[in-house]
Amino acid sequence: MSYRPITTILLVVSIFFLPYWFYISALVVAMAAFPLYWESILLGLLIDVLYGERIDSFSAFLFSAGFLALAGLLILLPLRARLRSHASH
């Protein structure tokens, strides 16, 4: 049974009803736990759309939750690959 869709649904619910320190922490954990967790980008955009203000400049977009999720994924990808190759040795 895949926990990935369940986790995504739970994160969506937590974004609507729980404090930011919970769902952002859970999002980071999910990004580290699941391989190529691209859903985190959509969840970050959901946070921006629900709770952020209108983005009217490129610099504001760089600090949006969606873009930061993308950056986090790009940082985690090589880290996860190295951890996996280290564990396999």
Partner: peptide
Amino acid sequence: FLLGVLAFGVLVFYLMNGVFISAA
């Protein structure tokens, strides 16, 4: 792929901005 997801998400989410809030 990730950039594509971001672009798709920006297009969909920001166009449907009011829909999400009205639904919630």
